[in-house]
Computed example of a mutant assay.
Amino acid sequence: MPNQKQGSEQLQTLMQSGQISGSFSFNGTLSKEDEEMSRSALSTFKAKEEEIEKRKMEVKERVQAQLGRVEEETRRLAIIREELETLADPMKKDVQTVRKRIDVVNKELKPLGQICQKKEKEYKEALEAFNEKHKEKVELISRLMELVGESEKMRLKKLEELSKSIETIQ
């Protein structure tokens, strides 16, 4: 019994420090009075040890109860965290999918935009060239009309001269 051994050692310590007085007889044994005081001190000490042990057990039980509640709360929080993650997961995956698709479309748009700009530039240059050629054509048609008009005038004039010359011959 370790508690009894500890009690004996503590009793001896108390006696040596003078907290428990006792008179030893010459043969080294305790007198009845001293023996009674020793028993009383020992029983008081045992009672206090038992009270301390009882309180220790109560504290231990309360700690165990608290640990049980903490473990239960930890489990509940883990379940809540998992539920939150599953709630956020589908939206997160959808958002990531849409973002990736946007990135792909952006990569496809860049060269198409460059092609559009190049084609637009070519179109403007072609339109400008077309307009210049059309303007040149209009000018040439106008010049042609002038030339045809002058030619007709000259031919009519020549015809009139020839006509006059024929009349003079007759």
Rank of each mutant, 00 (worst) to 15 (best):
D89Y: 10
S40C: 06
A88R: 15
M91L: 10
E58Y: 11
K121E: 12
E136I: 15
K100S: 13
R39G: 08
K92D: 05
S40E: 10
K54W: 10
F24L: 14
E36L: 13
E50C: 03
E150K: 02
L109S: 05
K158T: 10
Q66G: 01
M15E: 13
S43L: 05
F26I: 13
M57W: 05
E83A: 14
S151R: 13
K48L: 05
E82G: 07
K135L: 10
E71N: 08
R81M: 09
Q170M: 04
K121G: 05
E58S: 05
L147H: 02
F130M: 05
S21Y: 04
I79G: 02
E73H: 09
E146K: 15
E150T: 08
K100W: 01
T29K: 11
P111T: 11
K32T: 13
E122D: 14
R99A: 03
M91H: 10
E125T: 09
N3Y: 14
G7T: 14
L87V: 02
K100M: 03
L112H: 14
A47S: 09
E33C: 01
E73V: 08
M15C: 08
V95H: 03
R75W: 04
R155E: 04
T13Y: 10
T74E: 10
S142I: 10
V104F: 02
K100L: 02
E61P: 01
S8I: 15
E49C: 03
E50W: 05
V104R: 12
K118N: 08
S43F: 01
K119R: 09
Q4R: 09
Q12P: 00
V98A: 07
S31Q: 03
C116D: 12
R62T: 06
S17P: 01
G22M: 07
L159C: 09
E36K: 12
K107E: 14
C116I: 07
Q12L: 15
T74N: 11
K157E: 13
I141K: 06
S165Q: 12
I80G: 03
Q170N: 14
E167N: 13
K56P: 02
Q170F: 00
R155L: 14
S40H: 06
T44C: 06
P90F: 02
K46G: 06
K56E: 14
K54Y: 04
K124L: 07
K157R: 10
L42F: 08
V98L: 13
E73P: 00
I20E: 02
L42Q: 14
F24I: 15
S40L: 14
Q19F: 07
G28L: 08
C116E: 07
E160I: 06
Q117F: 01
G68I: 09
G18H: 10
E146H: 08
E83R: 11
H134R: 02
S43N: 11
E61G: 06
L30Q: 03
E71G: 00
Q10N: 08
E132F: 05
E53L: 02
Q114R: 15
G18D: 05
G7K: 01
K92Y: 04
L87P: 00
F45H: 12
T97S: 01
E51P: 00
P90W: 02
M91A: 05
